[in-house]
Simulated assay, not measured.
Amino acid sequence: MEAAELAQDDKAYYLALRSYLFSIPDGSLCITTPETYREEAIGGGYGFSVAPMEDGRIRVVQVEPGFFADMAGIKWGAEIIRWNDLPVAEALEQTSLLWNDTPCATRECRLLKQCALLTRASVGTTVSVMFRNLDSESVWVTRLEARRDSYKTLSDPLRQEASFGEFDSPMADKVLNGGIGYIKIHGQTATLATPFPARAFRRIVERFLDDNVNGLIVDLRGNVGGLDDLAASYAGHFMQTPMFYRDLVAFDYAKGGFALDKAARITIEPRTPCFTGPVMVLIDHSTRGNSQALADSLHELPNVTLVGTSGTDGSWALPGGKITMPQGYVISYPIGRMLDESGSIRITAKADLESPVKPDILVPLTLEACRAFFQDGRDVLLDKALEEIKARNTVTSS
């Protein structure tokens, strides 16, 4: 960084700054991203996306029509074997996460994001790809060129990270076949469309109870987090006794350091109506912020099961820190950490890069699961949750 400053090299200075931040596995960190630098680094795509399978293979899960990959004969489900003459696993390990939105806190998140960034490069960059299409014994090698595509293949291939705005509701609900309630929560926040989300959530639970649903599925995939008071409020509709939610250690300017904020403790208080039937909570790597604490708190209940393709994001902190660096680059960082009842940091992944919130029922990414999702348009996690609730109701009734 010193050399970049001495040379008055703005790009080198920025890259050094970003590299340092991204060496810290904390998804609560971020820095201004100049579009010029991002476009220069990963503005081109090869026209396909890949994902890691349970068996260790890397398979194509999306092919953009008309791009080089499509014209080269790479089909959906193809196994990628080598990338620029390296075994694909080795190529993935060498794939930089520098241009991800934030640092990754878990191994699972790292691998998924490396898969997304593997197929990105500067516009005009060429790559040699060895692949084998499904139901074929032939191995092919092709050379592809990265084309500008508005970052199409950079989005989450599992399509759970849906954005919502002020004119959207942060939650949606319906009753599924078999009389099972379903609620999707995008974030614990108010919007213009739903200015009182705690009331909206209560009304949803009331409707489900009035409909005598046989179980409830709470979908926290793609949940961006939000207000802790709201998360505790939602959780209260499943509680019959109070439950500790979190303590907060934050920077205290009066004390000149970090200190426990005793007034900030949150306890989940039971709320009416209370749902006590079987509950399946859907999670994955896109379950972020305090939605992880919501899932983890519900998981303490005997009638709640976590279902997912992976653990959660692994980062949870109090945001609010901002510092403006030379050249106007703004770094955002956490100013406090959430603690569990024993005083240990809650939710945030530790040095082992393992998410503390993992599914009880793991639905692995297999070829069959991907075919169901991408080809048949089925939600395999939702299917599994429905299957589990129906099976448990059958056992109870018998």
Rank of each mutant, 00 (worst) to 15 (best):
residue 3 A to G: 01
residue 7 A to V: 00
residue 8 Q to H: 13
residue 11 K to D: 08
residue 11 K to R: 14
residue 12 A to C: 06
residue 12 A to H: 06
residue 17 L to R: 10
residue 18 R to C: 02
residue 23 S to C: 01
residue 24 I to N: 08
residue 25 P to I: 09
residue 25 P to H: 10
residue 32 T to I: 10
residue 37 Y to G: 00
residue 49 S to L: 09
residue 50 V to L: 07
residue 53 M to R: 14
residue 55 D to W: 12
residue 57 R to E: 15
residue 68 F to L: 01
residue 90 E to H: 04
residue 93 E to P: 01
residue 100 N to K: 05
residue 107 R to L: 12
residue 113 K to T: 14
residue 114 Q to K: 15
residue 115 C to V: 11
residue 116 A to F: 09
residue 132 R to C: 01
residue 136 S to K: 09
residue 145 E to F: 00
residue 162 A to T: 13
residue 166 E to H: 07
residue 166 E to L: 14
residue 168 D to S: 15
residue 172 A to Y: 13
residue 172 A to L: 07
residue 178 G to P: 03
residue 181 G to C: 04
residue 199 R to S: 14
residue 200 A to V: 07
residue 210 D to Y: 06
residue 213 V to E: 03
residue 223 N to T: 05
residue 223 N to V: 08
residue 231 A to D: 03
residue 233 S to K: 03
residue 236 G to F: 07
residue 237 H to D: 07
residue 239 M to Y: 09
residue 248 L to R: 04
residue 250 A to S: 15
residue 263 A to C: 01
residue 268 I to Y: 04
residue 272 T to I: 08
residue 273 P to D: 05
residue 279 V to N: 07
residue 290 N to K: 00
residue 306 L to K: 09
residue 307 V to M: 02
residue 318 L to T: 10
residue 320 G to I: 11
residue 326 P to F: 02
residue 328 G to W: 11
residue 330 V to T: 14
residue 345 I to Y: 09
residue 351 A to M: 05
residue 351 A to V: 09
residue 371 R to N: 13
residue 377 G to L: 12
residue 380 V to Y: 15
residue 394 T to W: 08
residue 396 T to G: 00
residue 397 S to T: 15
